[in-house]
Design a protein around this nucleic acid. Structure first.
Lengths: 135, 135
DNA sequence: TTGTATGCAAAGCGTTTGCAGTGAT
DNA sequence: ATCACTGCAAACGCTTTGCATACAA
């Protein structure tokens, strides 16, 4: 049976309050404000459990480590800002893409990622989340 | 100055002859038919060098390790077969996707991955490349 | 001969797992 | 009092790097 620990609550809250998919490391940092001694292994274990329970879903972008967000958002896509590297949900979809595949191929699903500048980075606002910038 | 080694030729040939993007491990296996003692580190070093030279490009699919293919194909996308896990090029594109992003966001580029069955796996043909199937 | 490229092994990085101790029920 | 959960550290898979040797030029 599942138990309600402070750690699990902190992890769940961290993701629920973020308005975007978070990396495990970001979840750790956010959840540690509530549970200072929290370990990264606990974050991974809970992320996995919460995904299996259907509460969270993994967000995989090309060439990126998996991020996690709450389920509920129906079919949607993602946008990654090339300046701050953050990922945002896009609640729009180009629609039927089956016609794009070669003859004989059957298309069942698709993933779409948009790249560019988020609204904050588009305006002259100071760069956000520079700590997660790639080297 | 760059040197022409047997290893580099074997790696280049392996990728050129494949009709799809290859994983480093697949490149190693293919190139070893020509250079048996080839090491994986040499594969990685050459892949990186060939990408920097502009001869190869990395193909990153969501949740997958990077694959490599020859450059030349202009803007295109990819299709991954859910049965054999192989990746194929798709020389079609849904076109302008800038309208999908939220207000204030600027779209500069996009990545699209289609999922389904490749032609071989759609027909009753024997499963291909089972050695690369995920556990 | 010179210095880049190679093979091996060790190190990195993100993620998973074993284990003894902790704490929710 | 159970037994799932936690933190730590070791283990993993993929990729990179240090180093002495091999070989293209």
């Amino acid at each position: 049976m599942e138990r309600n620990t402070r750690q699990r609550s902190a992890i769940r809250d961290a993701i629920a309050q973020a308005q975007r998919p978070l990396l495990p490391q970001e979840v750790l940092e956010a959840a540690r404000t509530e549970v200072p001694g929290l370990g990264i292994a606990t974050v991974y274990r809970n992320l996995k459990a919460l995904v299996e329970e259907g509460e969270l879903q993994a967000v995989n972008l090309p060439g990126e480590n998996p991020r996690f967000e709450v389920v509920g958002h129906r079919h949607h896509h993602h946008f990654q800002c090339r300046q701050c590297q953050r990922v945002f949900d896009v609640h729009a979809c180009p629609g039927d893409l089956g016609r794009l595949a070669p003859q004989g191929f059957t298309v069942e699903d698709h993933d779409l990622t948009l790249y560019g500048r988020c609204s904050e980075c588009s305006s002259g606002a100071p760069p956000h989340g520079s700590s997660h910038t790639h080297s």
